[in-house]
Design a protein around this nucleic acid. Structure first.
Lengths: 218, 218
DNA sequence: TCGAGCCTTTTTGTCAACATTCTGAATTCG
DNA sequence: CGAATTCAGAATGTTGACAAAAAGGCTCGA
């Protein structure tokens, strides 16, 4: 069983579609349809769906069936709040515990981000952005905190941003925004290297507020 | 399908056993065994297991199979840290947003806790303890924060305490401890009613530290 | 025109059997 | 004596079919 199990394939595929909003919120997820879609058995789909239920990306209808969880403007606000809480706390811990290697790795991710932005790879830069924040949380050396962060659907935030570049009726996620993001990332790394909690947290808060403003189109 | 589905029955049963440590950490969960145990089909067990996988109460072996997640002293420490972060942040938000009704409800739970402790209902008082903290987090009016709290296996903390009263070789969770817990709860409610962030948070931190000391047997 | 009740179709929940892979102990060989 | 190997038994991953339930359309009557 060295290869991926059917349930895993379905799980990853479904998760991707839900997070990228390819599957519309409140939409019913019909088992057989997805089974055909992924060429796996219905049981595998069922397992994926219950797993996603555990993660909260999907909810169970009162009379059976699974539906994709929705994402209102209010949800975005709550998400930002949660993100603020987790990341600022993580940053505080990271200031005490991060190793030099970790800080170097974060800086490297920062470089990756910059270079991708510079060369116009939008999806790639979003990925690097995501990795940057994950590394910050990981540097807290608290696996449970990292788990809470990862399983809070916070990535959705980023994906939505990534998507914005495709649907022009939403916000334009411009090169200027990317540049600003990069500058903030650098400031955060510097604060971490200097173990300057207050400064890092101040920058982080700004960072989040700007991100939400972009998403909701303030 | 108004009645509970087999998968739900199995899910609840398994979760209870894992959290109460009836099922030993790193123990393999054999599907057929539990299927017989709960009188449900193996497919239902499989669904429960993947759901628990999503919640992190179970992990998937490299070569297939499910195993119950473990809980080392280090995990307890990380859990306390996470709990501190979530609850103190929630308290801060609750100071701004909690309604009078919510505060009254929390106070009522406090009374319940006191009366159960007084009359010697240990399991019941643990339940009320758990409910108290959940209500605090709920009063933050951030559903995602509450979800992060609930899905972080924090309840395990409480259950373990509850169990301590049965296995005498561990800590004795005495009436004095319960009384102290109750006093702290009251102080927290008062701080919330007075919207006094700093005081409430100070009490909370003490509360957590004492709890961890009891668990690890300092 | 509208609604109640019936009926067909769709979808989910359950089950048992099959195929594949892993585990662990007995066995063989160096 | 110890380590690799083999081999049966056990456990998992997968499949298709069946039964129960829900959704939606249809007729009929007021």
């Amino acid at each position: 069983m060295g290869t991926k199990t059917q349930a895993e394939i379905a799980y990853e595929g479904l998760k991707r579609r839900i997070l990228s909003l390819t599957a519309q919120p409140r939409q019913r997820l019909k088992e057989e349809e997805w089974a055909n879609n992924f060429s796996v058995s219905r049981a595998a789909i069922r397992e994926s769906l219950t797993r996603l239920l555990g993660e909260g990306l999907v909810y169970a209808g009162e009379r059976g069936g699974f539906f994709v969880a929705e994402m209102t403007a209010d949800d975005v606000a709550q998400l930002r709040e949660l993100r603020e809480i987790i990341e600022t706390s993580a940053f505080r811990l990271a200031c005490e515990r991060a190793t030099q290697d970790e800080i170097d790795a974060i800086a490297a991710t920062c470089d990756d981000h910059a270079s991708m932005v510079h060369r116009g790879y939008l999806a790639g830069s979003s990925e690097a952005d995501l990795a940057f924040h994950q590394q910050i949380v990981a540097a807290s050396h608290n696996a449970r905190l990292l788990r809470a962060y990862n399983s809070s659907n916070i990535p959705l935030f980023h994906m939505k941003l990534g998507r914005a570049s495709f649907s022009s009726e939403l916000i334009t996620y411009t090169a200027a925004d990317h540049a600003e993001t990069e500058r903030e990332h650098r400031a955060i790394v510097e604060a971490l290297a200097a173990r300057d909690e207050e400064k890092g947290i101040a920058v982080l808060m700004n960072h989040f507020r700007r991100g939400e403003a972009l998403v909701v189109g303030d």
